[in-house]
Every structure is written in C-alpha cells, then in structure tokens.
Design a protein around this nucleic acid. Structure first.
Lengths: 151, 151
DNA sequence: ATCGTTGCAAAGTCTTTGCATGAAA
DNA sequence: TTTCATGCAAAGACTTTGCAACGAT
C-alpha cells in the first residue's frame, strides 16, 4: 500500500509526537513528490512558498523525525548533502541510477543483491542488515541529446 | 601489479607536479596501509608523527591530487567524511562491508554486479560508468563477541 | 630563477544545538 | 496547563580557498 498522510499521523501520535503545521507541510511535500529525492534545502525552498517564516532547523529536525518513524529513508548520492525519499511498501527494493549529466535519479528494482548478500554471509560470516547500490553513468535521454547534438 | 612509489612518482612528473616531502610522506602512509580506508584526518594524524609542522590543507590538497592522477580512490561510507583507498590493479572490483559495531571495513570481490549493470542497460538504456555497492551489518568478530558476552 | 606548493587562517557548506518563545494535546 | 516544537543564531564538523612565504626543479 502506498503511504498516506493518515499513516504518518498515526505513527507520530503512537510515539508521542505532535502534528504541527510545519510537519504537515513537509510530509505533504514528500507525498506530492513521490519518486524524487529531496535534500533539506530542496524541502526548505518548497516549504517557503507556503510557510515563509519556517526555519531550516525545523526542516532538519522534521526529516530526522520522519526517518526515525520510518516514513522517510536517508540516501546519500555523494554530492555532499543528504537526500530523502519516501519509504513506500510499493517499491521496497530498488537501486539508484544517477545520471552524471543531468543529475536525474532513476530507480531500478531488482533482487540480485540478495543473492550476493547470501554469498557474502556464507564466505565471510558477515551478517548483513542493509545494502546500498548506486550506479553512475548517463541516462538514455542525455545519450540521445549528445548524439543529436554531435551529428 | 601492486602500485609502488615509483609509479606514483612517474605519474606526478608526467603531469608537471612536484614530489615534495609532504607528498612523499602521504603516499608512503597509503602504501604502508594497503587495504585501509583513511580519512583526511587519519592521514593528518599519521603524518604529524613524522612531519609535525604539516598542515591539514596540504593533506586535503594532496588527497585530491592523488585522486586526480588515479593513485587513490575516494570512497564514502556515509559517516560524514571522505575516505581514500589505493587504486590497485591487484583488487580491481570489490564491494565494501561496513561493520556497524566496530566500524571495520572489509572488502569483498565479486563480479555479480556486472551482470546487473547489463540488465539495467538492457532495460533502461542507462549507460553505466561506475557502480558502488556497500553492505552494512555486523562482522563475524563482533557477532562472536556479542554471543560470548550474552551467554 | 620559476612556478608550483605549503601553512595559516579565514571562509564555505551542510548540519546540529541551546535557548527562550510558542503552540498542540 | 503541560510538554513538546519552533525559530533564531551560534556552534560544529568537514572541506576549500586566498595569500604570502617557501622550495623542488
């Protein structure tokens, strides 16, 4: 099931947190931007459009909270800032394809790494909790753009 | 072939760089710590033992330079600081296993991700240049320590 | 003698924190 | 009314940069 506002509300209350307008707004931003990977500053900029008085500290604190209650997942694409995506049961296992030309991030579903996890555990005894796989390169659109530009 | 001081020296001169004592010392630190993943601060601390007057800025600049000439590879384990490892032809393709208890980083050689790269390219058209895979969990030693501690 | 390199300190970026005010429950 | 959340500004962590002095070639 896709994550909805009601679910987030429930999780907040369960753990004794309050649903403030600021949190409401930040959650809404993520729900309206499914599939995107927003940095604190992205969220802050979007938030400012409707809540101009909101501070960046609240954004950071809210992102941390939403990660804690497993609404968001923190991802790191090595660009020096943390990004967040919705933790949605609909797309449980995916890797990220990062286009080095346009910066677009695509998701790719696959379970091949589970086999790899098993191999690692068998060979090394390492007990894996989580894995992260990222692929860097050029997306199909940017390749086409480059081709038509060069002739 | 394992990377040696001579190779680094050659690459430096080829591109018009100088081999200063500071650079020499930093390269030596990496050559003497093959398999480790050192942060700028790690290097700085080790460097201070022999070169107390050396500044951290030089460390950062040298790491950047060594990455440029493909002697080092920058890796990011999500702990808020960049780490560097030797780019050695001897262990070309490996993933990192990060122990969440003791912080130890182990390398694991495997080519399974190349198959995955091909699948991604076939399905999405994405042209992959590089991939990064990291596995987080608990290493065998920490598991044993936990077992013997609890009973 | 040149021209790249160093060390220092200042600045930059992202993120966290202290504290008094404010507001959800 | 209680308790948690907010906004602001200051501080923190890591990294980069400007600049004058320095040193490898």
């Amino acid at each position: 099931m896709a994550l909805m506002l009601k679910d987030v509300y429930t999780r907040l209350l369960e753990r004794g947190h309050k649903l403030t307008p600021q949190r409401w707004a930040i959650i809404a931003i993520f729900l309206m931007n499914r599939g995107r990977h927003l940095s604190a500053d992205d969220v802050f900029a979007m938030l400012r459009e409707t809540h101009p008085s909101n501070g960046i500290a609240t954004v950071y604190r809210t992102l941390e909270l939403l990660e804690e209650i497993e609404v968001l997942k923190k991802v790191d694409f090595g660009d020096g800032r943390a990004r967040y995506e919705i933790r949605d049961d609909d797309s449980p296992h995916h890797h990220h394809l990062v286009c080095q030309k346009c910066g677009k991030i695509t998701e790719f579903e696959d379970d091949l790494l589970i086999a790899l996890e098993e191999a690692i555990h068998r060979k090394t005894g390492f007990q894996i909790t989580e894995h992260v796989a990222k692929f860097y390169g050029v997306c199909a659109e940017c390749q086409q753009a480059a081709e038509s530009a060069s002739g």
